[in-house]
Amino acid sequence: MICLKKGLRFIFDKRYRFVILANKGVYDNMQDEALLNRKYEAIFGKRLNLDNPQTFNEKLQWLKLYDRNPEYTIMVDKYKVRDYIKEKIGEEYLIPLIGVWDNPDDIDFDALPDKFVLKCNHNSGLGMCICKDKSKLNIENVKSELKKGLAQDYYLTGREWPYKNVPRKIIAEKYMTDTSDSSDFTDYKFFCFNGYVDCVMVCLERSSGDTKFYFFDSNWNLKRLNTRGKNAPDGFTISKPSQMDKMFEIAAKLSKGLPFVRIDLYQSNDHIYFGEITFFPDSGFDANLLPETDKYFGNLIHLEDVK
């Protein structure tokens, strides 16, 4: 039934059809600005205002097109960013690196520990392998998925130009959990505006297939900013991580001088680890943000400071 509904929508909804075809690469040859205009209108049902952008999602599209700091390519590279983080805040915040390769066939799986994470350095998700028990691993399938990941031109999916020239590699990192008896790793995603950290989005139950997203400010007050969190009951909260105040400080330091960036951090056994730097969450097409949040975050991005 779900497939039938999607099929009918594909036939009769031209905006939905455009998004699906764009994600499949049909419009890869379209110019950046033209594709962003069409995709924005297809998702939000209104024209993208690049002449005078006001909302968060609009300004992220503007930044894609006009904020071309070459250092961003290093910052989105999951391998090279390690040197950047080492210089900015220290090597102790890096998840231990096990290995790096250009080709999946070069990986010696026998030498890897029983638990590890494999991922491409230039994209988001495609090809990733989170291994919790190497004895159950289908190595040929893992290699096949990694090859698909390496072949992906991630820049084309949302025209996020920093990814365009990342030299593609595979990295292996230590498998991490929140605590010694935890089976999951909680994401803490900090929304940062030139050194000011407005809030953190906590991502819970990622392995369940039904991830929960909740926003909190630096005083650990719930902020009802998205469609998934607005209906949380009165007084709702979750336990504040022991290192949360320090994580806000780190996010502020890493985001200074950048009009907007999302800094992703983790906490494991009271130790903070760096996750990644994201310039365009949901590629600037986040329809889960409440309209008032879209405007609120948009007001915090000052495009006049972009050089």
Results as ranks from 00 to 15, higher is better:
267 Q>R: 00
252 A>H: 03
293 T>L: 01
243 Q>S: 15
218 S>N: 09
275 G>H: 04
186 T>F: 12
242 S>V: 15
210 D>V: 13
287 A>L: 05
221 N>F: 10
267 Q>I: 03
190 F>E: 01
243 Q>E: 14
258 L>D: 02
179 T>M: 12
208 S>V: 12
222 L>V: 09
216 F>L: 05
267 Q>C: 09
181 D>R: 12
240 K>Q: 13
189 K>P: 04
254 L>D: 00
221 N>E: 11
234 D>M: 09
253 K>T: 11
256 K>C: 03
278 T>E: 04
229 G>Y: 01
216 F>N: 06
249 E>L: 13
245 D>K: 08
178 D>P: 11
194 N>S: 10
279 F>D: 07
259 P>Q: 05
193 F>P: 04
221 N>G: 10
186 T>Q: 13
195 G>P: 07
287 A>W: 06
200 V>Y: 03
217 D>N: 10
180 S>V: 15
253 K>N: 06
192 C>H: 07
247 M>S: 09
261 V>A: 13
211 T>F: 06
204 L>P: 00
300 L>W: 05
189 K>Q: 10
187 D>E: 15
254 L>P: 01
291 P>K: 11
181 D>T: 14
188 Y>I: 14
283 S>F: 08
284 G>Y: 05
179 T>P: 10
275 G>Y: 04
274 F>I: 04
183 S>Q: 14
255 S>I: 06
291 P>G: 07
263 I>G: 00
181 D>Q: 12
254 L>H: 01
273 Y>R: 09
193 F>L: 08
195 G>Q: 09
240 K>A: 12
240 K>Y: 10
179 T>Y: 15
274 F>K: 04
268 S>L: 02
219 N>D: 14
221 N>W: 05
205 E>G: 12
211 T>D: 12
209 G>D: 14
264 D>V: 06
238 I>C: 03
273 Y>H: 11
221 N>L: 09
299 N>W: 08
259 P>E: 02
239 S>V: 12
263 I>E: 03
185 F>Q: 11
270 D>S: 09
216 F>V: 07
266 Y>V: 07
238 I>Q: 02
255 S>P: 04
218 S>P: 01
254 L>S: 01
218 S>M: 04
261 V>S: 07
